[in-house]
Each structure stands twice: as C-alpha cells, then as structure tokens.
Amino acid sequence: MSLEIKNLHAQIPGREILKGLNLTINPGEVHAIMGPNGSGKSTLSKVLCGHEDYEVTSGEVLLDGENILEMAVDARSRAGLFLAFQYPHEIPGVSNANFLRAALKARLPKGEDIDAVKFYKTMYARMDALEMDRSFTSRSVNEGFSGGEKKRNEILQLMMLEPKYAILDETDSGLDIDALKIVSRGVNAMRSENRGFLVITHYQRLLNYIQPDIVHVLKDGRIVKTGGKELSLELEERGYDWVTEEAVAA
C-alpha cells in the first residue's frame, strides 16, 4: 500500500517538465516537496490528478498497486487521491453544501444517497474545527471568498472526502499567520496511519505547522535531494542553488 511514482516524465507540447521523477509515499507519512519557481511542483500535482494539459510520456503512478495514469480524473479522485488546489475554482450558483453532497454521493453506488442528517452533523463539526462560519454552507463554492477562506474550504473538502492520499499545492500561499495556523490544525487533524500527504510548498514556514517526515527538493523536473525535516530549515537558510551543485557533483 502506497502512492508510488516511478520514473515519471510529463510534458506540455514542446516542453518536458517532469524528467524522471521517483517518489513513494506510504500511508502515515507526510512528504514535503520544496523547490524553486518553475521546478515542476504544481505540474506534479496536476499530472497526478490527470489534468488534460499535460501529457505523460513515460513512467507509472501506482495508487495501492493500481496504475492510475489510465484512469479519468474523477476515477482517480474516487480511488482516493485528493488535491487541495493552489487556486481553487469558483462555482457560481452551487452551494458549498450541495457541492460536498454531490462529491460524497459520487462515491456511492448509483441510486444511493447520503444520509443528510449525518452529513450536516459531520460538516458542521469540521467547519467548527476550521473556524468557518455556518453561512459558508449556503454560499456558492469559493465565490467571493477571500484567499484564506478558499484555502480553508479546500481543507474542509479534504476533511469531508477523507482521501487515502492528499496533495496540498502551495496551501500556505496567500494565508496570514492566523489562517495558516487554522489550516494546519485541520490538516494535522487528518494525519493518520491510513493516510499519506504530499505537501508542496515554496517556503519553510508552512512546515513549522505541518511537520513533514521527509523533505524532497525538486529541481528541473527531478527530485535532487531527500532528507529529514531539518533539510527544509537548511533550504530556508541557504536557498536552492547549493542543492543543484551537490546533485551535479554526485
């Protein structure tokens, strides 16, 4: 059981972005991926989820043994893969509650529906944990939300859908320190021995709150260095240039 990425190559027309990426996330682990702008961090999250703009030219991604690269976007989600978006989309006219219900219902056999009472109870409890006002249930998904509200909403979806593997793409961007703490608390509450996390971030700050087990440095489409959480502190201090040199030297 793991999310296993093997020798992954992916491109947009005319430009290869991921150039043989290897990474294995076991349930219970929190991996952080750090790297400079343009290193392929966000591409990795979109490729894993099956975004149509990217073409996988070789490699495999196995979710608990199953190659998900053959699967449609929605099937990957239902298989247990979740992405907290860097820029969550607005869905005008669709309430947060209806959206979550539809997403949960999509996981049930055709014709079955979720228990509405239980659903609201769970949702309210999780919203409380994220310090989200109840009015967010009836507001349109992300419409008119501040940056911080959008990120909290992503974590609410994570908490409701309870995926096996969750990718957080720059969840700290646009958050003030208070919001960062709340969001991190939500993520930490979801940490479990049955769930793996991949935390993509540009800055070390987030990792003070969501402490990773393993830190990777992504550069030019490949993981060039892997270490413990102390690596993130070193990166914060020294930047990314020395990592490249080391990789080349090795």
């Binding site: 989820c49 975004h51 149509e52 449609a72 976007v73 929605d74 990957r76 989600s77 239902r78 979740f82 992405l83 978006f85 969550p88 989309h89 869905i91 959206f99 539809a102 997403a103 999509a106 996981r107 979806q157 859908l161």
Partner: peptide
C-alpha cells in the same frame, strides 16, 4: 477539472 477532482463525472 476542479469538480472532477472531487469525484464527479464529467
């Protein structure tokens, strides 16, 4: 893509 990432079919 956003909606499908949450498990909804196209």
């Amino acid at each position: 893509f956003y909606l499908m990432q949450r498990g909804l079919s196209e």
